Amino acid sequence: MDAELRVFKTYAFIEEAKALKALLETNEMPAEIVEVSSGLDSNFSGEFQKEYAIKIQHKDFERAQAYLEQIAEAQIANVPDGYYLLDFTDEELHDLVQKKDEWNEFDYLLAKKLLKERGKHVD
């Protein structure tokens, strides 16, 4: 089964990886966590930073992404006051939207929503 699994997402913290693994498995998408080294050393310890990759079957990628976006959509209605994206400029929000893979689903969808509310075009 390992040969069929591919990296879906990576996280800096094991807790985030475990949470995603649990969500995916709850929705009948088998997942595993693999520890990987980022190749960059930490300024604090001089050691390689660890990342945690979530691997799932490639056939589940679209369904998993849609599920994560559905969860994020539900959370957008309850954005806390002072959330850091609320202070982003239009240019910063556009940059975030263009680099979707570097952000989590919540931030990506919130950036799109904020741009639309500000009357800005979002592709």
Rank of each mutant, 00 (worst) to 15 (best):
F106N: 02
G46N: 03
I54K: 00
G39I: 02
E51S: 00
L96Y: 08
I54P: 03
A19F: 12
P30A: 15
A19N: 11
F44T: 06
D2Q: 11
A17F: 00
F48D: 01
E47Y: 07
L85P: 04
L24E: 04
V7I: 14
V36M: 07
F106C: 10
I76L: 15
E28Q: 15
Q75K: 15
I33H: 03
L23H: 12
H94L: 13
Y84D: 03
I33T: 08
K116Q: 09
K100E: 13
D81L: 00
A77R: 11
K21Q: 14
E102T: 10
H94N: 10
F44D: 04
D107I: 07
L85E: 06
A66Y: 11
S38D: 05
E15Y: 13
K9V: 03
D95S: 09
L86N: 03
A31K: 08
F13L: 14
K18M: 11
P30G: 11
G46Q: 06
V34M: 06
Q65H: 15
E25W: 14
E35N: 11
L85K: 00
E105A: 15
Q75H: 10
A17P: 00
L23N: 11
Y67S: 07
E105P: 01
H58M: 11
E105F: 13
E102Y: 12
H94S: 08
D107M: 09
L115V: 00
E47K: 13
Y108T: 09
D95Y: 08
E51T: 07
A72S: 14
I71P: 05
L20Y: 04
D2S: 11
A12F: 09
N27V: 14
K50F: 02
T89W: 03
E15A: 12
Q49R: 13
F48C: 06
V36D: 01
S45Q: 01
N43M: 08
D60V: 05
K21N: 01
Y11H: 12
A64S: 09
N27T: 11
D95M: 08
Y67N: 03
R63W: 00
